[in-house]
Design a binder for these strands. Structure first.
Lengths: 231, 231
DNA sequence: ATACGTATTATGTCTACTCATAAGGAGCCA
DNA sequence: TGGCTCCTTATGAGTAGACATAATACGTAT
């Protein structure tokens, strides 16, 4: 029982009029005051509804000019980036994790520029495999800045995957993520049931905290992997 | 000159306290009323600030229980999906487009299930290439539902790319998008400077409008292409 | 001890009003 | 034809107060 008009109702009706109704691309919407009158609610309610439609990228709002339906909506896809464990368990599979390699090395030249580190810096290098129902799902090749996170030198990554340790240790970092297709290396072929040279879906992720590089990771997926989103 | 506390200031301070300050993962934030008192503003202002922090996936809000900092933030990457033209022109390159093939065919079996179409349905099939500064950038393999969009049968796609025609014709559709790595086909090799079998970054996109399949597209990128986002 | 109803409390949302700010447009003057 | 000021208008954002709703806490009856 909500006799009052809610901003969700207003929003739904506005969306309907844009997608199915009289407000086509480029058209000018009535002012907030007029809409408030029409929907018999306060201007604040209309404002909130319009602000959320704006966040969807479907309208363009300008002071004095008014609110206009975009000619082409600003398309944006949102991908949730879950922990591998959650991703695998969400498919109903049993998660297992194995540490393949663990070493402390001076920073390789290829990562020096990427992580903005000096020549004497050291990185903890980890290679591990994530399995779903016993089948390899993802190969993780991770480098952790030992200068920024000295605890990483001594941590035992055999029990807990580095990703889970990191989100618990540095929860709110800045992240740059990129997707690409590459040819399978011998390492990827060995651990992911690929043949060398096969196409591999890779995610590269760099994270920073307070201007310091924390970790750089390459995630390689099993053959046929897809990332999907709706919008 | 804004002597009043704005919701942005409140939001910034809350974010600071979560990321650098005293409110670590799992901790309970003061109630909106207490925060309003502390920041000398109204509850509505605090509410708006907290609502936006919630949208970032950093806190968990529950009636009666209060607001809690998440143990691990809900990571979400947002990708803007621009028109190829805009993508290429944003790099400072000159955009050119070429139509390679245009035909009307009965729906292939592989697409019948995907687009939920009957056996007598027909699709407009288009293959085109998008160039940046004369070099091939993206190969577009598109199928348009001729039943839902009869205008597509007669439209001349030599002048305008199908994507631009479609966003002008059916601007607000539902989209499913997925990314994957595949091996280059002969067609991709011919038009994108790949060798057959090379890894190709592919984007597949299906769009629907009012429950009807509109179009299904496979976008294949030139060698080395990356999709990048920050969050 | 367990089950159930009730009080409490924090968030969710709406109203009504106020002032701020960006920007289009009219009018005026050189 | 400019270029300038000033008025008007639509959104942006704040205040205070009210009621709704979900969920926990607690006290009482069985």
């Amino acid at each position: 029982m909500t006799p009052r008009t809610t901003f969700r109702e207003v929003q739904a009706e506005i969306l309907r009029r844009i997608t199915h109704g009289p407000w086509g691309p480029g058209s000018l919407l009535p002012s907030e005051i007029d809409l408030a009158q029409e929907f018999a609610c306060s201007r604040a309610t209309v404002n909130r509804a319009l602000r959320e439609v704006d966040a969807l990228g479907m309208i363009d709002r300008r002071r004095k000019s008014g609110t206009r339906v975009r000619m082409a909506p600003v398309r944006q896809a949102r991908f949730e980036i879950p922990l591998v464990r959650a991703e695998i368990e969400a498919m109903g599979a049993t998660y297992r994790y194995a540490l393949v390699r663990r070493e402390v090395l001076p920073t390789p030249d290829s990562l020096r520029a990427l992580m903005n580190l000096g020549p004497e810096s050291q990185l903890v290098h980890l290679i591990c495999v994530h399995y779903g129902d016993g089948a390899p799902y993802q190969l993780e090749d991770r480098w952790i800045n030992a200068g920024a996170l000295p605890q990483a030198r001594d941590h035992d990554f055999a029990a807990q995957s580095p990703n889970e340790w990191l989100v618990a240790t540095v929860p709110f970092s800045e992240v740059e993520i990129s997707f690409q297709a590459t040819a399978a290396t011998d390492l990827e072929a060995t651990h992911l049931n690929h043949n060398p040279g096969d196409p591999v879906f890779q995610v590269k992720r760099s994270t920073w905290w307070q201007g310091q590089a924390i970790t750089h990771t390459t995630l390689s997926y099993r053959p046929g992997h897809r990332m999907t989103a709706r919008y």
